[in-house]
Amino acid sequence: MEIIMSILSGILFTTGIYNLLQKQLLRIIIGTALISHGAHLFILTMGKLKRGAPPILEYDISQYTDPLPQALILTSIVISFGVTSLLLVLAYRVSKRNETDNMDLLRGNENE
């Protein structure tokens, strides 16, 4: 299953990057969201999957899934959420202020 999850994360990265390489801001941000999902899935996969109970201590269970990747993902999810929110607002402001959501028209020139 880990291999399938690795492939799925790879697909999330692939589609994310493909979107990142587009011109329209919305697609680009969708791309980043996909990449974050991919990254989180990768982290989860790196702790072994389904080896034991959820990491909540219970009487007479000795085998738990690896809790550390879960903790790391939690931190990362929250951070990604912060960045994504900022990015969304920034994207909105950029397109309003520059009157386009096309990154190709947002190249700028030297004398600015």
Partner: peptide, 9 residues
């Protein structure tokens, strides 16, 4: 703003 978004991305 224009350059910021590239930086952030």
């Amino acid at each position: 703003l224009r350059e910021s978004i590239k930086y952030v991305l």
